[in-house]
Nucleic acid binder design. Structure first.
Length: 234
DNA sequence: CCCTGATTCGC
DNA sequence: GCGAATCAGG
């Protein structure tokens, strides 16, 4: 499989929504987890909480090159680190005022420079709250800052109590027995969920059901006689 | 063992 | 550019 624009878009979306690389790889199909991670990095989608990478100063070399083909110049001065998100210079917490009307009028924009900015009179903005708690926006108002969505992992909703504790379709992995229990559509339809017989999609017990030993040709039993002599043959 | 993301490097 | 191999932490 190749990285078409569509697949790249899917990758971006899932990566940003917090799906793991494995999940994304499964979803896309035809690519490995490593491929997804590699592509994500090449795309510049980067930096998700990694279990390995400490978020703070990497004092030690994280991964010393296994095959140091070229000696790296050690005296490299790191360039100025680019902040991941532009500094929220004038991110005045406007909506807060709506919820804490008693608070004194805070400085609307905490400008940090020393220029003698003549603070315009902090005229009290009238903010009305609509049903559901959203803030009504006046014609001149700027869009309220959208709070960044925290990274979240999609968790399959548990649909019913009958299935609680059972192996659902979403629980299936390479090493989970996929023998169906019940029938699709029924409320308690699930899968066996036992440890798989290595190399097979089912556990040992269900392998015995799925794969019946076949006698060599010539030694097969004749088919059992059908009732009433079987279908009529002219 | 399983999982995770990061990184390297041959292709 | 791609991704398997590898590393390393949970």
């Amino acid at each position: 499989m190749s990285w078409t624009d569509e697949r790249i878009d899917q990758l971006k979306g899932m990566w940003e929504r917090g799906l793991t690389a494995s999940q994304i790889a499964e979803e896309l199909g035809g690519v490995s987890r490593n491929a997804v991670i590699g592509k994500a990095h090449r795309l510049g989608l980067q930096s998700r909480p990694s279990p390995v990478k400490a978020n703070d100063a990497p004092k030690k070399a994280a991964v010393p090159p296994r095959k140091p083909v070229s000696a790296a110049p050690a005296a490299e001065v790191e360039a100025a680190p680019r902040p991941a998100t532009p500094a929220p210079v004038a991110q005045a917490p406007a909506p807060v005022r709506a919820f804490t009307p008693a608070a004194a009028p805070a400085a609307p924009a905490p400008v940090t420079d020393e220029a003698p900015v003549v603070a315009p009179k902090p005229q009290p903005r009238i903010v009305s709250v609509g049903p559901g708690g959203f803030l009504r926006q006046g014609p001149g108002d700027q869009q309220a800052p959208i709070p960044p969505a925290p990274p979240r992992r999609l968790v399959p909703a548990k649909p019913s109590a009958e299935i609680a504790g059972k192996t659902s379709l979403l629980d299936l992995t390479e090493r989970i027995c996929k023998w169906p229990m019940g029938h699709p559509g029924e409320p308690d339809f699930h899968f066996c969920g036992e440890q798989v017989n290595p190399g097979f999609p089912y556990c040992v017990e269900h392998c015995g059901r799925a794969y019946q030993a076949q006698l060599p040709r010539g030694t097969r039993r004749p088919p059992p006689p059908l009732p009433f002599g079987g279908p009529r043959v002219r």
